Computed example of a mutant assay.
Amino acid sequence: MRAVVFDGFGADLEVREVPAPQPPPGGAVIRVEATGLCRSDWHGWKGHDPDIRIFPHVPGHEFSGVVEAVGAGVVSWRPGDRVTAPFVCACGSCAACAAGEQQVCERQTQPGFTHWGSFAEYVAIDHAEVNLVRLPEEMAFSTAASLGCRFATSYRAITTVGRVRPDEWVVVHGCGGVGLSAVMIAAAAGARVIAVDVSFGALELARRFGAITCVPVAPSRTETGSGPGPEAGATGGDRTGTEDGSGPGNGSGVPGPGPGPAVPGLRPAVPGAEVAARIRELTSGGAHVSVDALGSPETCTASIESLRRRGRHVQIGLLPGLTALPMGRVIGHELELLGSHGMAAHAYPEMLAAVARGTLRPEALVTRSIGLEEAGAALASVGSVPGVTMILPRR
C-alpha cells in the first residue's frame, strides 16, 4: 500500500510503498477513504509521544472507510461495511470498559501512535466489536473522518463532561479543529458562545459556526509564526487530537492578528493576560463553562479565571508537563476542573443522529482536501490553514 512514512522524529515525511496490514485476531483492516490531519500527528512526528518507539512509522488517527478484512472472532462486521472508529481503541474487558468508559480504557491502542496509522490506503484496528462505528449510507467519508477525534471529543466535552445547558455562557479558548467543533456543538445546545483566538481567520469561522462574540488575542513574540510553533502540548501517552487548536503556536490558521483582516464586530485584540477580565466583563461576572481547546498554561489559566462562581472548566488540549494553576480561585469560587478524553464508540449514535438532522454540521469544518503526496508538507506546517484538513488517500 501507499503510506506517509517517517524514519525518525522530525525526519522527512515520504510517501512509500509499504506492506499492507493484516487484521489482528478480533480486529479489522479498514480501507481508508478519508483521514484528518491533526496537530497530535505533528506531536507524534516531533517525538513528543512515548507510544511511538519503532520506525518506520505511519501517522494518522482519525479516519473513515470500508472494512477490507476482519480477524478471527469478529462476527458483527464484514468486508464492505462503511465504518469509522474513535481514536481511542478500547480493549472491551478492563474495569473502565466494563463501566462503559472506553475512552479511558486501561489497555487502549491508538492508530498512528501505538501502531501504524491512517495516513495510508489501509489501517488496522484492534477489538473491532468494541471500536467500529457503522456509518449511515448518506454520510460522506470526509464528514465521518472529521468525527473520529476532534468533533467526538468536543461533543462529549460539551454535552457530557461540561453539562452545557441552554442560555449558559460558554467560552472556547483556541479555535482550531476541536475548538471550532466545541463552538458549533455548544451553540447547537443553546448556549451563548464566546470564541477566543489569536487568528482572525479562526474567529471568522467561529462566528460562522455560532459564536455570538469573539475575543481576538494579541499573540506574544513567540506566538506569531505560521507553523506549530513552540513544542508545547507534549504529554505522556494520551492525546485528544486537539492540538491543532490555535493560540500559542498558532495552530488554527492564518498568522496571528497583526491587525489582520477585519471581522465584523470585533474589538481590538487584547493581551493574553487580559482575556479573562474581558470575558468576565462580557458575561457580567464570568462564564458558566470555559473550555481550553488548545492546551497551554496561558489558555488553561485564562479559562479558569474566565469562570463565574461554581463554574466548570473543561480541559481538552494537552498541557506540557506540570502546570501551575490559580487554585486559590478554584477553591474560593468552588470551580470544577474537568478533563475530557475522546468518546467511546457506543456513544456515537446520539451524535450521528444530530448530524443526520442537520443540527450539527461537521462537514462545514473541513476547509480543504489533499492527497497523500501533499500530506507530509501539510503535517509539517500544520495550522497554516484554518479549519480541518482532510487527506484522501485514493485521490
Rank of each mutant, 00 (worst) to 15 (best):
F209C: 00
S306M: 09
R207D: 04
S381F: 10
G317V: 15
T299Y: 02
G256T: 06
P271R: 11
S220E: 14
V133R: 15
S381K: 12
S199R: 14
Q110W: 12
H346W: 12
W45H: 10
A293K: 00
G112T: 02
F151T: 08
G117I: 03
T109M: 15
L318H: 02
S284M: 13
G371R: 11
F55S: 02
R39I: 13
R312S: 12
R278M: 02
G162Y: 07
L392W: 08
R368Y: 01
P56Y: 04
E336V: 15
V178D: 00
A72I: 05
F119I: 04
G339E: 06
R150S: 14
L319S: 02
L365Y: 12
V382S: 11
A72Y: 08
H127V: 01
A145P: 09
V83K: 11
I331S: 13
S246N: 11
S384F: 01
A232G: 14
V66Q: 06
G233M: 07
R78K: 14
I391H: 08
F9D: 05
G321H: 02
V104W: 13
R368K: 06
L147F: 09
E298R: 10
G174E: 01
G176V: 05
V5N: 14
G112K: 05
D167M: 03
A99D: 08
G112Y: 09
A128F: 11
A3G: 05
F63L: 09
G295V: 07
